[in-house]
């Protein structure tokens, strides 16, 4: 049985944990390189991307996690997790780095600051409508052809992807974990062999 981990340095770890528990999976919380070795797939939660990036370095996880991802480990990032997995980060700090597993360019807070945070139903391929909660959300502004778009949203200026996958790596600009709907997590886990 493969083992699912949740990166537990900062952010809405508890919500991801509850979501996957509702699917009958007991995840491992990953805060150290040793814990990373125990898991076969990893969820990167929402949170503050700069804080999580900083903590990845100080906890010694940056390099081993980059290696695991490059070796093909499955990963699912929401919001800050999407930023961490993206190839290019726009409007980030000058020293912002990322794992570059998804060939997309994301703009931090691309939908605005907190007062512009919003929720709206999102049509996901093969699932139908799911609730979309966008909080200071990153916006996917460019994406390469090898990136598969599973859902898009038109925020008044054309369709932009909000749920994407490239191989075993998935990224989502909203927060399925903040709702009681576990379908996106289920879809990801099913695709990566759980």
């Amino acid at each position: 049985m493969p083992r699912l981990g949740i990166l537990a340095l900062q952010g809405d770890v508890r919500e991801h944990q509850a979501t996957v528990q509702s699917l009958g999976i007991e995840p491992t919380l990953v805060r150290t390189p040793q814990q990373l070795e125990e898991v076969d797939a990893l969820i990167l939660p929402g949170g503050e991307s700069t804080a999580i990036a900083h903590l990845l370095v100080t906890s010694g996880l940056r390099e081993p996690l980059a290696n695991r991802l490059n070796e093909g480990m499955a990963a699912f990032g929401t919001c800050a997790g999407l930023i961490a997995l993206s190839a290019e980060v726009l409007d980030g700090r000058s020293d912002q780095w990322s794992f570059a597993m998804l060939d997309v360019a994301v703009r931090r807070n691309g939908y605005g600051r907190q007062v512009a945070s919003f929720e709206t139903p999102i049509e996901v391929e093969s699932l139908g409508l799911v609730p979309g909660v966008f909080i200071r959300a990153p916006r996917i502004e460019r994406w390469d052809p090898q990136v598969e778009v599973l859902a898009s949203h038109d925020h008044g200026d054309g369709e932009h992807p909000v749920l994407v996958k490239q191989g075993a790596v998935w990224g989502c600009s909203f927060h399925p974990e903040l709702t009681s709907n576990a379908e996106i997590h289920g879809l990801f886990l099913q695709h990566v062999g759980f």
């Binding site: 340095l9 508890r14 949170g47 909660v133 038109d154």
Partner: peptide
């Protein structure tokens, strides 16, 4: 394009700050 200022998006930002 969606609803702003809902309890879920307001509480949601607090959720994102957890552990920080």
């Amino acid at each position: 394009f969606g609803s702003v200022g809902t309890a879920r998006v307001k509480r949601g930002l607090a959720d994102m700050l957890r552990g920080g």
